[in-house]
Computed example of a mutant assay.
Amino acid sequence: MTEEEAARWMLREYDEFGFIYQEAAAGHLFQLNDEKLAYFDRSSNLCVGKGVLAIFNRLTPTAVYERSGKFWRRRLETDQPGRQQ
Rank of each mutant, 00 (worst) to 15 (best):
F17K: 15
E66C: 13
N33C: 06
L53P: 03
M10K: 04
R58M: 04
G69A: 14
E66P: 07
A25P: 02
E23W: 12
T78D: 08
S43H: 14
A25H: 09
K70F: 12
S43G: 13
R8P: 00
M10G: 06
A38E: 05
G69R: 14
R73K: 09
T60L: 01
E66K: 11
E23M: 07
P61I: 03
G27A: 03
F17N: 15
N57M: 09
R58A: 11
W72P: 05
Q85N: 10
Y39W: 09
L29K: 08
T78H: 10
S43I: 02
G69C: 09
F71C: 12
E16S: 13
E4H: 14
L32D: 07
A54P: 01
L53K: 15
L29F: 10
G49K: 05
D79E: 03
F40D: 00
E5A: 14
Q80I: 08
R75L: 01
F56I: 02
H28N: 08
T60I: 03
R73M: 01
E5H: 11
R58D: 13
R75Y: 10
K36Y: 12
L32R: 14
K36V: 00
Y14Q: 03
D41N: 15
P61W: 02
L76E: 12
A38G: 05
R8F: 09
E3Q: 15
R8V: 03
I55H: 13
E66W: 13
Y65R: 02
T78C: 07
F56D: 02
G27M: 01
E66H: 15
R83N: 08
A6H: 09
L37A: 05
R42V: 09
D34I: 03
A7T: 06
E77N: 12
G27N: 11
A7V: 05
G27E: 08
I55L: 08
A6N: 06
N57G: 11
Y65L: 01
V64L: 01
G27I: 02
Q85A: 14
L32K: 12
G49N: 06
R12M: 04
R12W: 05
R58N: 13
Q84H: 15
R58P: 01
A6E: 06
D41W: 05
G82Q: 03
K50F: 12
A25C: 06
L37Q: 08
V52Y: 12
E3S: 14
E13T: 11
E13I: 07
K36C: 04
T2F: 08
V48C: 04
E16H: 12
G49V: 02
Q22C: 10
V64I: 14
P61N: 05
Q85L: 15
Q84F: 13
Y14M: 00
H28F: 12
S43F: 08
R67L: 07
E3N: 10
K50I: 11
I20A: 03
L59W: 08
E13N: 06
P81G: 07
R73Q: 07
L59K: 05
E13P: 00
E77V: 09
R8E: 12
Y65G: 05
W9C: 01
D79W: 06
W72T: 04
M1T: 15
A54H: 13
